[in-house]
């Protein structure tokens, strides 16, 4: 709460499960489920017009859904914080996750977002704290910032078929 963020919007990812539950349980936090990640960009922008700070949670596949909305964030220099849990990295068992997982950082950077990585569990909190300060830094100019949380930090999803 010391970050001043009072709104968290999300398309769920297993890696954000506990955080989403905590946000819903916190009375001072507005948790907003989205149908698609791009909605989080507009929501964050509108909230900031009204003085409220937000964070958007998404899986790396969702990065592909936000691209044109990032153009708006960039042109208007809207602050935007995206916490992206990665798929398609070490240990991935679903090959369909590989293309977007592999492209997520490059796509974000191509659209002018600042990209930070958290490769170890102990990196997550300080990196997110830095991202929020960067995004909402009125002196340096507000900007879009993404934190990519490595798949090994979250744990690898296993697909176990029930036989018989």
């Amino acid at each position: 709460m010391d970050s001043g963020v009072t709104q968290v919007a999300y398309v769920p990812d297993a890696g954000h499960k506990r955080l989403i539950e905590l946000c819903h349980a916190e009375p001072r936090m507005r948790a907003v489920p989205l149908t698609s990640e791009e909605e989080g960009v507009g929501l964050t922008a509108g909230a900031w017009l009204g003085g409220v700070k937000s964070v958007v949670l998404m899986q790396s596949s969702g990065v592909g859904n936000v691209v044109n909305a990032l153009a708006m964030a960039r042109e208007c220099r809207f602050p935007l914080v995206m916490l992206v849990t990665m798929r398609g990295e070490d240990g991935e068992t679903n090959p369909w996750q590989l293309p977007m997982g592999g492209a997520a950082a490059a796509v974000l950077e191509a659209m002018g977002a600042e990209v930070h990585r958290a490769d170890k569990p102990e990196d997550v909190a300080p990196t997110v704290r830095t991202a929020i300060v960067r995004a909402y830094d009125a002196h340096a100019g507000e900007t879009a910032v993404a934190v990519l949380v490595a798949q090994l930090v979250i744990g690898v999803k296993r697909f176990v078929e029930v036989s018989g």
Partner: peptide, 21 residues
């Protein structure tokens, strides 16, 4: 606030603003 891009975002911006104020 007039949008010159971000097609599809107007209602979400309205939602963010309405919840904030």
């Amino acid at each position: 606030f007039s949008l010159w891009g971000g097609m599809g975002q107007a209602t979400m911006m309205g939602l963010g603003l309405a919840c904030a104020r």
